[in-house]
């Protein structure tokens, strides 16, 4: 596994992403972040809070779909928590960009980062379709919505896994 990831890193180094990362790292924005010790930790705090918001939203929709949390119709639940989800996603993407500008090489030339990006694109697509369908469900969620709900939790866990492991990528 390490071997595979190492080769992935090596391959990333041979792509234009390497030059892009180096170009970004020469900007004033990157320099400013580098000079301020607390900038990166603060971006990470915003990122973690946004993950907390988005994961809680995904979790609460799941609980309602599978009947572990009651008190509202599926459409009300979808409406309520998809708003939490979209705002959290906006904060996630924003803080993620700041982290890329802060440490371009660490992020852009990193196998976990790109696995995570693929999962994020899939995750957002599934989330949009799921939230839209949940709002149209009758009182009991259908099989498709249930599968999508579970898939969304798994995707979110994998995204968090890759996010944490960016720091541990073999280079």
């Amino acid at each position: 596994m390490d071997e595979l990831l190492y080769n992935f890193t090596d391959w990333l180094r041979s792509t234009p992403l390497n030059d892009l990362a180096l170009t970004i790292s020469e900007t004033q924005a990157t320099a400013w972040i580098g000079e301020h010790f607390w900038a990166i930790p603060i971006f990470q705090v915003i990122h973690i809070l946004a993950i907390a918001g988005s994961f809680a939203a995904v979790l609460m929709m799941n609980l309602r779909v599978f009947g572990f949390a009651g008190h509202a119709t599926l459409s009300e639940t979808a409406h309520r928590y998809s708003r939490v989800l979209w705002w959290s996603l906006a904060a996630l993407i924003f803080s993620g960009f700041l982290m890329i500008i802060g440490e371009p090489v660490r992020e852009l030339v990193n196998p976990y980062f790109w696995i995570k990006m693929i999962l994020v694109v899939v995750g957002i697509l599934v989330a949009v379709l799921f939230a839209r369908n949940l709002a149209r469900q009758a009182e009991v969620a259908g099989g498709g919505v249930r599968s999508a709900a579970l898939l969304l939790v798994v995707l979110w866990l994998l995204i968090m896994w890759c996010g944490r492991w960016i720091a541990y990528a073999p280079v």
Partner: peptide
């Protein structure tokens, strides 16, 4: 350590996300 740390992240985002709601 990284694996336990990742599970710690799963747990803490659930704690803070649900409390924040």
């Amino acid at each position: 350590f990284p694996t336990i740390e990742t599970i710690h992240v799963f747990a803490l985002v659930t704690v803070i996300g649900t409390i924040a709601l």
